[in-house]
Design a binder for these strands. Sequence first.
DNA 1: AGAAATATGTCAATATAGCTGACTTAAACC
DNA 2: GGTTTAAGTCAGCTATATTGACATATTTCT
Lengths: 175, 175
Amino acid sequence: MPAAVLHNTAGDAKDGEVLELVELFFFAYRDFVRDADRLLETYGFGRAHHRVLHFVDRRPGLSIAALLDILRITKQSLNRVLKQLLDAGLVEAREGASDRRQRLLFLTSLGETLARELAALQSERFRRVLGEMPVPARDAAADFLFSMIDSEERTRVRDHLARARNRAQRAAEPL
Amino acid sequence: MPAAVLHNTAGDAKDGEVLELVELFFFAYRDFVRDADRLLETYGFGRAHHRVLHFVDRRPGLSIAALLDILRITKQSLNRVLKQLLDAGLVEAREGASDRRQRLLFLTSLGETLARELAALQSERFRRVLGEMPVPARDAAADFLFSMIDSEERTRVRDHLARARNRAQRAAEPL
DNA sequence: AGAAATATGTCAATATAGCTGACTTAAACC
DNA sequence: GGTTTAAGTCAGCTATATTGACATATTTCT
């Protein structure tokens, strides 16, 4: 089914072709978040809650500061959302062991359930898309997305991914 | 520079790999819109204004209904934004020739200037990214984005792209 | 020990972008 | 002439973000 939708022949991309990519990116993102939004609505939560759930799931024990750094929003914005998640019993804050000022964030089992339901929806879309692509093009998709990120942000993102991976390894080890 | 960031070996994508794509998509979109947001701020406009400017630029003579269909927001939401753009003299509404109830939207030269400045920012990002990719992978990027769109929406998107391509000849078009 | 920096929380006000519901006007369709 | 359609409008609501100012506890530095 995917057969060069835009007929990008070769060489430099023309103005119109690039504009179409801009639009496709807009439409793709619009649909990408809509799945999750619908599910969140049934719980009375929004996109902001999703982001917190996601990143705490990916990196349990994340501090408030680290979370703010990832989300790039203000402390006040986060607080409202975080308080709702704490009150609803989806997120748990524990005092930091080495630095008792810190509140380290963890998901409760309830929070984990929702986080993984949401992740499943969005992963499903990617799985479908990857399945429709030839294998060599899959790495290209990841490189494409990574390259779309601001160069100054890439180190931060790479660091985040590495930390999330280490967490996964630690979880897998005690088998 | 792009060298298989995620080391997607072959076969089915693993859970962790797919989750990383989900995150990369989030980060990529976050940065993608930030360029434009910064410029818009200096004009006192927001992302909603940008979308209107963009789609009216792409399809001059767009009716309100057609614009609502693309944006997937309510008439009331659009109206506030559209009124500001009309008042600021960036957008112009003309009575439909065949159907006088319609208000067909066009950019003024002022509106065109801003729309193209914004488009240039976002196109620049794509040009950079495409430039960093091997030529065959470029079509893959377009196919990837198109495939990310809901299947029920793809016809609509394809139709929009076709109309945008033909826009030069047309003055106005029916929905 | 005391000062300074840090991590977090909180209050208040504001902006943007969306929503629903109800209603109007004017034109087109049949 | 009645119904449908395209668009505009009023009022009120929600979610997500912002800035600025200030409070508190804890750590770190001198």
